[in-house]
């Protein structure tokens, strides 16, 4: 299924390393690349370093070694330039509680440099992520986690950036919304976005991703094109890697 996508990487980690102030080595010389039109899924236990990797791409933290690049721009050297090219959905989207969904979308779209959207645009993107119409003009105060997550995804779509970072974007989504999100990812891929996603959903990852990476203790212990994993039981593989087997042992 996976095609060899031509061209340079849009998202790239080069021996990316992060040791926190308290000494925890959260990311240990991690390298990978996501090209336009590719979805890169990171699997891994809690605390494996997935969020750390995404935060490094957003320059929320500085790398201890190596660098994260977006469209060739080193994020910790030119963060503003890099951030123009990336949209982000966190694992727990938080928005302004006193603003309505549409007001939140409008503000963040403008921050993302998109000032030309109309009310209709906001309406259609909210419908696209599955937020029912009666919630569009309600204050965020009463929104459930899944509803906020949908708004966060809508904001990322509106930014229309070439790179997208998704940190467990489907956490809190109901099954229907989860399925719709999968379709959404597909269409974003067709639009040529480069998508880096962390997830705990092995099955969905296998279905939607082009490359699957398994992380453990700050290292990528497996990184394979999804096409090569087609016949394999990914869940068993994952367990083996978590148990500390080396790549050779696991595949054997």
């Amino acid at each position: 299924m996976m095609l060899e996508v031509p061209g340079a990487a849009m998202l790239e980690a080069v021996t990316l390393t992060k040791r926190y102030e308290d000494g925890v080595l959260a990311l240990d010389h991690v390298s990978f690349a996501v090209k336009p039109g590719q979805i890169f899924a990171m699997l891994g236990a809690n605390g494996a370093g997935k969020t750390t990797a995404i935060n490094l791409f957003l320059n929320f933290i500085e790398p201890t070694d190596g660098e994260a690049r977006i469209d060739g721009i080193v994020t910790h050297k030119e963060p503003l330039l890099a951030k123009q090219r990336v949209a982000y959905v966190s694992e727990n989207v938080m928005l302004y509680p006193n603003f309505t969904a549409v007001q939140n979308l409008d503000y963040f779209a403008r921050l993302g440099g998109k000032t030309g959207y109309t009310k209709d645009d906001y309406r259609s993107v909210l419908l696209r992520v599955g937020l029912s119409e009666d919630a569009h003009n309600k204050r965020l105060k009463g929104f459930s986690k899944g509803m906020r997550q949908k708004c966060g995804i809508a904001i990322a779509i509106l930014k229309d950036a070439p790179a997208i970072l998704l940190d467990e974007p489907t956490s809190g989504l109901d099954p229907k919304a989860g399925f719709e999100f999968q379709q959404l990812l597909d269409s974003l891929r067709t639009e040529g976005k480069a998508i880096l996603m962390s997830t705990h959903d092995i099955f969905r990852a296998k279905e939607v991703a082009d490359i699957i990476a398994i992380m453990n203790n700050g290292r990528i212990v497996m990184q394979e094109p999804a096409s090569r994993l087609l016949g394999q039981d990914l869940e068993r593989l994952y367990m083996q890697y978590m148990a500390g087997h080396t790549a050779a042992e696991a595949v054997a």
Partner: peptide, 13 residues
């Protein structure tokens, strides 16, 4: 309230 990360995922000086 968790809005800062989303704000600064944009090119905001």
């Amino acid at each position: 309230s968790g809005t800062l990360p989303l704000v600064f995922s944009n090119a905001v000086p």
